[in-house]
Structure formats: structure tokens, C-alpha cells
Design a protein around this nucleic acid. Structure first.
Lengths: 341, 341
DNA sequence: GCCAGTTTCAAAAGCGCTTTGGAAAGCTCT
DNA sequence: AGAGCTTTCCAAAGCGCTTTTGAAACTGGC
């Protein structure tokens, strides 16, 4: 059933049926009701491709995931973020397109998407420091919003980010309040903007309390369980080991806990640790008192907000660039306690 | 730059340019070269929407993720699976569309996708027993392939699956060879077809060796770290506890290890455990000897193969339904050893 | 009863591509 | 040289929608 058939069936022109369906004013209430009823009865849906061609808008928003050589490390955040964004899209009548792009081909991919009219807008993920994609997309003329910020990008752009600096500063501060003086940082890769900001928060908080930053107490790498374990093990083996850790993700934290327990220590008593918790659905920390003290911020919610932001950007490009800085909650769990003396 | 402009520029008709670009025979080699060069020079890309409208094919393949109430549990497998499928799609010139659909609205969503001409085909994930989606999609007339199988579905359909039954049977057998007689099963939700098959493999292997199946030794739930921990803790607390575990996912396994270590036991010596390992990129078990003995099968590869299968299904619907049964490797790591006496 | 203004609808022109159905030119062969 | 092919190109129709433009019908005021 297409528009032509539907309008023939109703004895109306395609114009009228189309305008009735799309809520224009110049169709009488009676006709509109008749049209709506018929559309419902025959379960008519306008053909997406035809509509897209006619309107010049595809109703699709793209997410690009770069494929780094063959063993692309997929971001564990990805699934929940997508789920959040997808919810907003489907409510707003948009579709989500995910494109896996060979690393280094990103520019080509963006240009191609624009030329082919594939998408109306884009979501940029995992920004690095001085990320070149921002200037590129402005040049191409594709609306977009960034999940995170790119330190060094000097032009305005839309973003949703967690206040990583403050979250880690607060966590550090909290550990200092508990009496900890040697605090290790088990960070993500610091080419990633978020990790860079977390380190800043950590260092600022230490300095603000008159504590020295000891580079020997920090690590950075891809956030796996094994990395958390290795890093914590190494740090605990130091002559003057930290009594507390700041950890970049729950997956890492699982490894950190393992190292602590292996060392015959008890998490939350002998050693404290705070992790950042993106509230990934398959790692949820249930129970009345959470296992881990954490700076918590839902990445799913970030996905929702970012989706909304791109849509707004598409609809009203003249409006100034929007920003949302989400504050992470500091949730006290059982992995922190006063520093042992 | 569109077709019209490009052909005007070349002094050719749109027909000729279009046919040259699409590799038809009735255009001379000289003209084709000229067209190709011009297209390259101006970076011409045919408009996706227009092409889709003209050909009746969208070049898009859909993945539906159901949203169960508000706390949709996102499958941890999702990201890697999508990455695998996406790689194949982009090589084959397809795009991937992901649609988040409220649970219970799936049928409506499928029908709508078909009517709107949104997608050329679909990938069905996480089949349950007697999954109704298979009959539904046949009725709707949308090509599809299933990631996994649906016990009870009596019609032919395309699928890619891991031989879960055999994998768990082999793992069980291996544990029995090591002298284990009481083996616990920490399974996923058995409404899921894969979990059902794993249990079958486990039970068959036990019976084949003359061992009784003890329902008290099995658990099923959503596969989180906390669940693994709780399940292992409970089982270890039994009067006659198991000496080995079969575990459904690496995330669970992290919890199982924790419970074992907490009980003052050593994994691989006092208690053995084998997990299924989907080779999720952010949980990769690196190192020369893997930490966990595992039945290993790359979910990313499954994604690749399934994508290929849907594409084939779209291109050649008359061909009989394809199946691929991937065998999981049994990889020996450090989490198994002879049963203690 | 007529004019201006408002409602309500329809014809037709796109959107940018593919594809059908020729037509013109070039070739071979007798 | 003309019939019959083959090769190479093109005009135009069509995919299913939206949107512009304009016409018909209806309204009220005088």
C-alpha cells in the first residue's frame, strides 16, 4: 500500500492525503479523520526512501566506530551508550546507523556520508586531545555532537561530558579526608581526553591539600581486568605502597580487587579504592550497599542526552552550540575506609 | 555534485554516466575511463536515497535490540558482535541500522521496517526457545539470519551458532578426565537457547560417563560478576561441594574466581573451572598461558559470518537456507587441574 | 447578489537516481 | 551498396513521496 493507492482508495489526491497525514492545516477535520482512519486500517507507512529523497533529509544519525587494525578494541561502554542513544532516536522518529570504518579512513567516511546523503547528523565518540574530527566536520558541514570534549579544540562544538576532572578530584579529596596520603592512579590511556582530565583532577586535589604528585604511583593503559591486576600488584609491591587507588573503570577495578586480595589485604580496610562506574548494565553493582565506592555516571543517560543534542542541532542549527556537563555522584560503597596507620 | 551535473560536465547523458559507473557493458572503454576519472576528480557519490528509491533496495541491514522496561540489560556480547558484522557490511557496501525497540513492540517494528522499506534484511539476536520471530519474519517476507538457533522452530531458517552443546560436553568430559566427579554448572538464563544447549551438553557428558546429574549443583541467571560470585559461594558451601565448575561467561568467571579465593581455595588446584569465552575484546585473556581454561569462540567472527549470511540471503533468496555451526576450541589455561582427593 | 477573503483540495513539478526502449553509428558480409 | 548485426549512446519514464501553485467552493459583509 503506497500513497497513490491509498489516495485512490479514498477518492482524494495524493497531496491531500500526504498533508493530512503530516498534520498540515489546510485539510478539513473531517477529511483528516477519514484519511487517518484509512491509513490506520491499511497500516500505511510512508516509504522512508521516497520521503527522504523528497525532503532531503534521511532521518538517520550516524555513529562511526573506528576499526584499529584487525583486533579492534571495542569500547566496553559502546553497548550501553548505543542503547541510550537508540532509545532517544526511536522516540524522536530517527534511525541510528553504525558504521565500522578502518582507522585512518575516517575522513573519507565522513565525506562520503555527507555526499551520499546517508545521514543528517553524526555522533563523535571517544575524542582524543586536539581531536581533528571537530574541524573536519565543521568543514564538511555535517551537524554533530561529541561524547566528551577535546582539549585543544579551539572552536565551539556541541558536547555532553561527565565532569571527569571534578569527579576524580572529589574522589581524591575523599580519600585524603579518610587519611590516605599515598594514592595510586590506575588510569585509562591518557591520549584519551577523559583520562587526561581525570589525571588533572587527581593532581589538582593532591596539590590543593599540599600533597606531592608522585609519578611512580600512576599507571595508564587500556582498561582491562588484567591491567588493573598488574598495575595494582606493581604498586602494592613498592617499598612505600599506596594505601588507596583511583581506578578508571569497574572492569579494571575487578583486577585491582584481585591483586589486593592476593596480597592478603582486605579491600576497604587495608587498602581503599574508588572506581569510576559508567553503570554498564552487565556490570551493575547491585545490593543495598555497593561493593565499590565509585564516581558514578550513567553512560546510557549520556547516550540519551547526546542523541537529543544532535537532533536539536539538526533541527535548529542557528542556535548556539549546546553543552552538558554531567556531574558524577560519589557513591560510598564498601571499598573505602580510613587509612590504616 | 550530482549525476545531472556530472553528466553535463562530461557532455554525456545521465544514462551513460550511470551505466559507466555501475559497470554495465554497453559503454565503451574510453568513455568509461573518462567517466570514472571525472567521478574521481569531483569525488562524486551517488545519493543513497535516490538510488534506494530507484532500485527498491536500501542497502541497509537492521539489527533490533529489544528494550526491556527501563533497565534494559544490554548484552555484553553486543559490542563485539556488532563490530564483526559491521566490518563485513562495510566491505560489502552495506550499512548497518540499529533499532532499539520496546519489548513487546518487536512485531510492530518488523512490520514497519518492511513497509517503510527501511532495510533489506535483518539479523535476529538472542533467540529463545520456540522463538516466534522466525515465523513472523517469514510471514512478513524480510530476509534474515539468526545468531543462534531456536529449539522448537520447525521451519528452515539461516543461522550461525556455536556448538554450545558439544563445547560444554567436551568441557565436562575434560573435567571428568581430570578426576572431577561433582561438577557445578553456573549457566545463563535457560530461556535462552544457548544456555539450554549448554545444559544439555553438560548433562549428556555426565550421563555418558555414568555420573548422575545433581540439580543442586546447577544455577542459572543473568551473567554478571555478582551472580558468578554468589552462585559459586553457595555451591562451595554445600556439604559435598563440587570440585569443578562450568561457567557461562568470563564476566561470571571473575566472580567465581573471587568466591573461590575468598574461600581460601586456589583456582586450578583446589577447585577447577572452565568458562565459555566469547573473546570479547575488552576482556581478552592475554599472556602465554591463559588465565582461564575456556571453550573459546569469537563472537566477532560470528558477527562477520552472520552478516555475510544475511547478505547472501538477500542476494539469492532461492538458495536453500544456510547454516554454520562454529566449533568452540577447548583452550587449556591455569584454572583447571586434577581433582583433589 | 456580488466582491473579497478564507477553506479545502488537486495538478504537477520536483528530489537524484536506475532502467527501459529505442536510435544512431559502425561493422561484416554478400 | 544494402541488409543485418553489434556497439554505443540517449530520451524519457518511473521509484513514492513532498511541496508549490493555483483553482474551486464556500464564507460573510454590504
Amino acid at each position: 500500500m503506497n500513497l497513490k493507492q491509498l489516495s485512490a482508495l479514498l477518492g482524494l489526491s495524493q497531496t491531500t492525503v500526504s498533508r493530512a497525514l503530516n498534520g498540515y492545516a489546510d485539510v478539513s477535520a473531517a477529511t483528516r479523520a477519514r484519511v487517518l482512519a484509512a491509513a490506520e486500517a491499511h497500516d500505511y507507512r510512508p516509504n522512508t526512501r521516497a520521503r527522504a529523497l523528497a525532503t532531503g533529509r534521511s532521518g538517520v544519525i550516524g555513529h562511526v566506530i573506528p576499526r584499529i587494525n584487525t583486533h579492534a578494541m571495542v569500547n566496553p561502554i559502546f553497548a550501553d551508550f548505543i542503547a541510550g542513544a537508540g532509545e532517544t532516536y526511536s522516540q524522536a522518529g530517527y534511525e541510528m546507523l553504525i558504521s565500522v570504518v578502518d582507522d585512518g579512513e575516517e575522513e573519507k567516511a565522513y565525506r562520503s556520508m555527507k555526499r551520499r546523503g546517508l545521514v543528517d547528523g553524526l555522533v563523535v565518540s571517544a575524542p582524543r586531545m586536539n581531536d581533528p574530527r571537530i574541524a573536519l566536520l565543521d568543514e564538511i558541514g555535517l551537524p554533530y555532537a561529541v561524547h566528551g570534549r577535546a582539549t585543544g579544540a579551539d572552536r565551539p562544538y556541541c558536547w555532553v561530558d561527565v565532569n571527569n576532572r571534578r569527579a576524580f578530584a572529589r574522589a581524591t579529596d575523599f580519600l585524603i579526608d579518610l587519611g590516605h596520603r599515598r594514592i595510586g592512579l590506575i588510569n585509562g590511556m591518557e591520549t584519551m581526553d577523559f583520562a587526561h582530565r581525570r589525571r588533572r583532577g587527581y593532581e589538582e586535589a593532591l596539590r590543593a591539600r599540599g600533597l606531592a604528585v608522585d609519578a611512580a604511583l600512576t599507571r595508564q593503559d587500556e582498561m582491562t581486568e588484567g591491567y588493573g591486576w598488574r598495575a595494582a600488584r606493581e604498586l602494592l609491591a613498592l617499598p612505600d605502597p599506596p594505601t588507596a587507588f583511583l581506578v578508571s573503570s569497574v572492569i579494571c577495578m575487578l583486577g585491582v580487587r584481585r591483586a589486593i586480595e592476593e596480597a592478603g589485604l582486605m579491600l576497604g580496610r587495608d587498602v581503599s579504592a574508588i572506581t569510576h562506574d559508567d553503570q554498564l548494565s552487565y556490570l551493575r553493582d547491585d545490593g543495598p550497599v555497593p561493593t565499590f565506592t565509585a564516581t558514578r555516571s550513567s553512560v546510557r543517560e549520556a547516550g540519551q542526552r547526546l542523541a537529543r543534542m544532535v537532533i536539536d542541532r539538526i533541527d535548529t542549527p542557528q542556535v548556539p552550540h549546546a553543552h552538558e556537563l554531567l556531574e558524577a555522584e560519589l557513591i560510598i560503597g564498601r571499598s573505602t575506609g580510613p587509612a590504616p596507620r
